[in-house]
Every structure is written in C-alpha cells, then in structure tokens.
C-alpha cells in the first residue's frame, strides 16, 4: 500500500541551522494497516508525515503509494489519495464558509463548475448525524462558530468523505478536552473500520498507541527505532515500551506531553 525506501531529509544543509530530520527511513504498510507512532519531541514523526504527504521532497529515497511512485508528486495531487488531520482543529476547515460548503469542497464530485446537488446535501446531513453533535441542523452556519472538538470531528468527516487510500492523523485529539478527545478518537476508529482505511496515527498517549491499531512504531532522531507488530506487540505494556526505548536509545524517553498511563 505505502512503501518508503531509504527516505532521508536534511533541512538547511551547509548552514549553522542544519537539521537532519529523517535518516534512512524505510517502511512498508499493508492495505488496512492501522499504525500508531510514538516518539519524543523532535523525533521526526510530523516530518515523516510531511514527507509522505509531499509538503517537501526527500533528499534521497523513494515513496510509493498504492503501486504508484509519488516521490516528486506535488502535495495537492497527492492529497486526492491522502487524508490528513493536524493537531490544530482550526487547520482543517474554512471558518467563514458554512458546514455545508466545507463538506462540498471535500466531496469533490463532479466538475469544477458543478453545484452541490440536493442528494449530496442529504448525504452530508446523514454523515453529520453520525457525529452525534447536532451539526446536521447547523449546516448553514459558518464553521467558525463551532468548538474545537466539533471542528476536528468535521475535519475528520471531510478527510474521509471520499475514502482516502491513506489517512494521516497527527495527534489529532491532543488539543481537545479529554471527553471530546475520546469521542473523536472513537469516531476515528469507526470510520477507519467502516472503510477499511490504511492509517498512520501519531499519538502522545502511549496506552492508546498500544491499544489502537495493529502495529506500533517508535521513532527517535529521525529514525524508526522499534517496529512492533503481531506477537511481539501482543500483551505489551507501557512500562515495556519505556524499557525498550531506554535499551535502544540509551536514555529515558523524554517528552513533556507524553502520557504514560
């Protein structure tokens, strides 16, 4: 489904600000894989997502998505196959436009000059009702009036409106209050399961990293340190993870936002 071969990226090479963000990262995902990613601040988790999504082109290596070489494909073209959610819930929707208009943008059916049909609007309503946030009755309201949690749920709906080949979740519940975060996470699981999406999720919650999905990656200094799946991942606890990190890096996992419970 997704194959990364020896991806490396150095920002500002040859200057004092030189930063090696990714070093020789290789990764292969099967269709339907749900992979959680953990790692300290600056480990290269978001940079990995940027490489996959095409926010920059890698210095070396090759990225293949669904059998197609996308290494140097511009971001907006790749975005047709990749849905992406960020930590900032304000980032994924247009505040001055209505819920309906935002969904229409995401639906991307028909040509450039086509209008949103009645049938599509009805479909939007049904999808919004699934969120159970009362948004289906506020379709004509600007998105700017919604709360962070509502906006992130809407963004999730928009990103998966046309089921993407790959869904990238970059700590998408980290900025939400605990109960809303739980709800958005549950919604994410439902949607991923419903469409059988291939999904990469960065999280700072170590227990949900082990609970969710079928595979866990641990990153540090631009490398994938641990790749846990199958039997090796079965029955693993948070303290096991912390111990494994220390053994591999030689220092304790240090992340001020990391939740250990």
């Amino acid at each position: 489904m997704l194959t990364l071969q020896n991806i490396s990226k150095t920002f500002n090479p040859g200057t004092v600000n030189e930063k090696t963000a990714l070093t020789d990262v290789s990764l292969h995902l099967e269709k339907g894989d749900f992979v959680t990613i953990i790692g300290a601040n600056g480990a290269g988790k978001s940079t990995l997502f940027n490489a996959i999504a095409g926010s920059f082109f890698p210095d070396t290596g090759r990225i293949e998505l669904d059998g197609q070489d996308v290494t140097f494909q511009p971001e907006f073209k790749r975005a047709k196959a990749i849905g992406r959610l960020f930590q900032d819930p304000m980032r994924g929707s247009a505040p001055a436009m209505t819920i309906e208009e935002n969904l229409a943008l995401a639906a991307a059916g028909g040509g450039w000059l086509s209008h949103v049909s009645k049938a599509e609007k009805a479909a939007f309503r049904d999808k919004l009702a699934l969120l159970d946030m009362g948004l289906e009755d506020r379709m004509r309201q600007p998105v700017g009036l919604l709360s962070g949690g509502q906006r992130q749920a809407l963004t999730l709906l928009m990103a998966t409106m046309v089921p993407p080949k790959l869904l990238l979740l970059d700590e998408h519940t980290a900025a939400l209050d605990p109960s809303t975060a739980e709800k958005v996470l549950a919604l994410t699981q439902d949607i991923v399961r419903e469409h059988g999406l291939t999904c990469l999720m960065i999280t700072h919650n170590m227990s949900s990293a082990l609970e969710l999905g079928n595979r866990t990656l641990m990153m540090d200094s631009g490398r994938i340190l641990l790749d846990l799946k199958g039997d090796a991942r079965q029955g693993l606890t948070v303290s096991d993870l912390l111990r494994m990190f220390k053994e591999n890096v030689g220092k304790a996992l240090d992340n001020d936002r990391m939740l250990l419970s």
Binding site: M97, G111, W112, L113
Partner: peptide
C-alpha cells in the same frame, strides 16, 4: 460552484 468554493477556501 466547486471552483468558487475552492477560491473562497
């Protein structure tokens, strides 16, 4: 239209 919505976004 979708193009118009994209321009506004």
């Amino acid at each position: 239209t979708r193009l118009g919505l994209a321009i506004r976004a």
